[in-house]
């Protein structure tokens, strides 16, 4: 029953504008036309908008807001990103499922997305809180033919894509906190976790995890975070946003940027990243293993590392450092516990 339903939605979803006759559906699904009619009524109850014309057939004119493989794909116009979508209601972490899918040969561009993550992963084993139905929690599988050392560039590319897509879509002014946190009004709205499986000189696959706070109310955010520096699109704009439209915007923007990067290299992505860079040309506090110091954040290097200038005018490239980005507030653990 369930699979017939999914096939039916799949058939209707393929044709965005054209009607599909009841006869054709009945032939394809091997069920009677009256069974089709019953299915249609069930779909309408679930929130699908279906138009029926007596001499033409059926077509879908609207999907329910609820995420599913069909709703996310309908109207998505990409060549490879998100052409395969694995949707789950509740998972421990979309990253784990994406790794498993990648090991089982899931194609480049596969997306794993969930309504809710019970053990969402942040960087360095931190937890990422993923409220049910209130945000986009997904992982994207990539199979780039790149040297492993170039993998971090994809994290920065993803950050630039998110800043770009969110800025355009919601009329906000996102900034990127190096290397890959998205801030709106200096509060964290989205995070990125990049994980790689690689040999010495070859990437097997990369999984890019994205967590975006969308429709949480302020109370839902502060109740769940240690430090009150998390935000959502709802909090910043006062509006609810369609998860599906946001997802499609991000995936479409990502595909364009990725193809451009593979073709032309990192330099334009670097410029774009720097245009969104939080505290570029300002003083920041740097904590390394044994000392704290201040320097001016100049931007990022060709491989994505942090470039700072000390008081003697010397430039330094940092691959690993804890930065105090906010005065008197800790940088880490934002929306992570």
């Amino acid at each position: 029953m369930e699979s017939t339903r999914n096939k039916l939605i799949g058939l209707l979803a393929k044709e965005k504008d054209n009607y599909i006759s009841g006869q054709l559906l009945s032939d394809e699904l091997n069920i009677s036309r009256s069974a089709i009619w019953k299915h249609m009524n069930e779909l309408k109850k679930d929130g699908y908008q279906i138009e029926a014309q007596s001499n033409k057939g059926y077509r879908i004119t609207g999907f329910p807001e609820k995420l599913s493989e069909n709703t996310l794909k309908w109207g998505l116009n990409t060549d490879w990103a998100g052409t395969k979508i694995i949707h789950k209601e509740t998972v421990a972490s979309t990253q784990l499922i994406a790794h498993e899918a990648a090991r089982n040969n899931a194609p480049h561009g596969t997306v794993v997305i969930a309504d809710e993550q019970k053990e969402g992963k942040g960087r360095m084993n931190r937890h990422w809180h993923s409220t049910k139905d209130q945000g986009l929690w997904f992982s994207l599988i990539l199979r780039p033919e790149l040297q492993p050392r170039r993998a971090p560039q994809l994290t920065l590319l993803t950050a630039a894509v998110l800043a770009d897509a969110l800025g355009r879509h919601t009329q906000t002014e996102p900034m990127i906190k190096w290397p890959n946190d998205i801030l709106i009004n200096e509060k964290k709205c989205a995070g990125i976790l990049t994980e790689m499986q690689a040999e010495q000189d070859r990437i097997q696959y990369i999984v890019i995890g994205i967590g975006l706070n969308v429709n949480q109310e302020e109370t839902e955010l502060t109740a769940e975070t240690i430090k009150k520096q998390a935000t959502s699109l709802k909090v910043e704009t006062g509006k609810n946003w369609s998860m599906k439209a946001l997802f499609q915007n991000i995936i479409t923007t990502f595909e364009k940027a990725y193809d451009f990067y593979i073709e032309n290299g990192f330099s334009d992505i670097k410029k774009k990243w720097e245009s969104y860079g939080f505290k570029v040309d300002q003083r920041i506090q740097i904590k390394t293993m044994n000392k704290n110091r201040e320097a001016i954040f100049k931007g990022i290097s060709e491989d994505g590392a942090l470039v700072v200038e000390d008081d003697n005018g010397d430039l330094q490239t940092l691959y690993s450092a804890e930065i105090e980005w906010f005065n008197n507030k800790g940088d880490e653990n934002v929306n992570e516990k």
């Binding site: 492993p148 994290t155 990049t194 994980e195 040999e199 590392a305 942090l306």
Partner: peptide
């Protein structure tokens, strides 16, 4: 390894 906030596992070949 940790590089640019990415975890980079280095595995025996």
């Amino acid at each position: 390894l940790e590089s640019m906030k990415m975890e980079i596992p280095i595995a025996a070949e």
